[in-house]
């Protein structure tokens, strides 16, 4: 579903991604872990071109989205993204946050979108918050709304950029629970996270990124049970 070919990204001459080749299949749950500054968030943001790669290609559903002719706005509709800082629109109610994109982009009528918003809010456990503003919500609630907002466009893949890193510890669980449900329903997911237990339970494949490269990738059992890369062994000894 997503293929990257020798993907590279530099910021002001500093190479953050040093050539990443990845195939992410439909239905796969890929979890990316690694120390901060390893390039894992940059890699994720390159997948929907929030960061434009310096070199290499990204293919999504058979289309080279790094080519100039590609209508990236259309393709992004099929790639939901959840951010560390939630990035809800503070001037809109929860309901409007969810319905704005599908209605404006002509995917649904306002009535359909409103109905869908309530369904999605029910799914993330917040139907009573439809008319609240984001500031009235806790961090965990905000992130659940952000997930609902991304799902409203009916994406084929969901990208999560450290979705629980800005949350109070007691709110991490509620967000992870929704992500688990989503995974069980078969959503294709790429998750950058520090939650090792989530990686262990949900991932089909775990990637370890360090210094702009994928140093090791494996099933969670092998990844956590039998890590081979020395840097990964060191990393795991610190976080587990």
């Amino acid at each position: 579903m997503i293929v990257t070919k020798s993907l590279k990204k530099s910021f002001n001459g500093i190479e953050v991604l040093k050539g990443i080749d990845q195939h992410i299949e439909k239905g796969e749950k890929v979890v990316i872990v690694g120390p901060s500054g390893s390039g894992k968030s940059t890699f994720l943001r390159c997948l929907n071109l929030l960061e434009v790669p310096t070199a290499g290609e990204v293919w999504f559903e058979g289309v080279n989205i790094t080519s100039k002719e590609c209508d990236i706005n259309r393709l992004r509709q099929k790639m939901g993204m959840v951010f560390q800082q939630f990035n809800l629109f503070p001037h809109k109610t929860v309901r409007q946050n969810i319905t704005m994109a599908p209605v404006t982009l002509g995917v649904m009528s306002q009535a359909e979108a409103d109905k869908r918003a309530i369904e999605l809010l029910t799914r993330v456990g917040l139907p009573e918050k439809a008319d609240s503003y984001p500031r009235q919500l806790s961090g965990g609630q905000k992130q659940r709304v952000a997930i609902a907002r991304a799902l409203a466009m009916g994406p084929d893949v969901m990208l999560f950029d450290e979705p629980t890193s800005a949350l109070d510890p007691e709110m991490v669980g509620e967000v992870l629970a929704i992500m688990r449900e989503l995974a069980e329903e078969g959503m294709t997911m790429v998750v950058v996270t520090h939650e090792m237990s989530f990686a262990r339970e949900v991932a089909n494949r775990v990637l370890f990124m360090d210094d702009g490269q994928v140093k090791e990738e494996n099933t969670p059992e092998e990844f956590f049970g039998n890590p081979k890369d020395a840097r990964l062994q060191d990393f795991l000894s610190k976080v587990l």
Partner: peptide
Amino acid sequence: GQMEAGRSLGFSYLQSMRLI
């Protein structure tokens, strides 16, 4: 992050500017 959230939903640069 507001612009990024808008773009990630499929809005163009100008739509994100105007709506968000």
